[in-house]
Design a protein around this nucleic acid. Sequence first.
DNA 1: ATAGATGCAAATGTTTTGCACAGCA
DNA 2: TGCTGTGCAAAACATTTGCATCTAT
Lengths: 140, 140
Amino acid sequence: MLRMSDLLERLRERGWRLTAQRRVVAEVLDGDHVHLTADEVHARAAERLPEISRATVYNTLRELVHRGEVLEVSTDGRAKRYDPNAHRPHHHLLCARCGSIRDVHPTGDPLANLPAAQSFGFTVLEAEVTYRGICPDCAA
Amino acid sequence: MLRMSDLLERLRERGWRLTAQRRVVAEVLDGDHVHLTADEVHARAAERLPEISRATVYNTLRELVHRGEVLEVSTDGRAKRYDPNAHRPHHHLLCARCGSIRDVHPTGDPLANLPAAQSFGFTVLEAEVTYRGICPDCAA
DNA sequence: ATAGATGCAAATGTTTTGCACAGCA
DNA sequence: TGCTGTGCAAAACATTTGCATCTAT
């Protein structure tokens, strides 16, 4: 059963101009626990569409992030990773050794832990928790 | 009353080779709510010691981070910022517009919110919360 | 037809590195 | 004096941008 990814379907509905390049980027990003760097996205996209350029991948990722369809995950100095699981809120578990990432769903709302008195006049919009540790592969 | 910064004092005790360059880097980083980029550290250090090189600043910062004396704070794509307040645990409030940072001390232990069942085999070492919002300056 | 996406290559910004020299312990 | 830090410049990455060309709508 051929099914267009949820991502593509949603984008098409919102009048996103669909091109071959954008299609493969969206396809490459489909799935759970997918956290690729821009360069990895480009490499995988190029397997199916050899002429796709890095610039287009970067542009497309930037736009997907802007539209709230993909999450940009900072990884302590390493290249950013892109997470298609943007529709359900979650946090990240980052391997301090190899940089690999897993999605996690902690209990409780971290925002609730910041007393207003500590906001320094900021309008606080969101809280993101990064758990750091050593992944099973690196521990072995 | 002339007082050597706590940072310098601690480093000297641990046999850190003290040079003019390292001294100004440590001095520039002294204080609360200090979150400078490597380049800002270099600029301020160069005011007092014009011949200091960027490489030395980067090397020094890297070593301070390694020794646990300075915290490296990721800032969503912008240049990393360095936080001398590493001896007391805290989290960060980041302005999504201008990238400025404040230290905050939320209530509760975020680590406690990650059930073991969600650790994916990781040995989880720490949890860091990044609050994102708009700072008073940017809101004005 | 046309607004907008693409590819290429060059520019940008950040951080690291190689190597000869200099300076702290 | 000897190890180690420093400066310089170049390299290494990650990402963005300008511009001519192409294409989905």
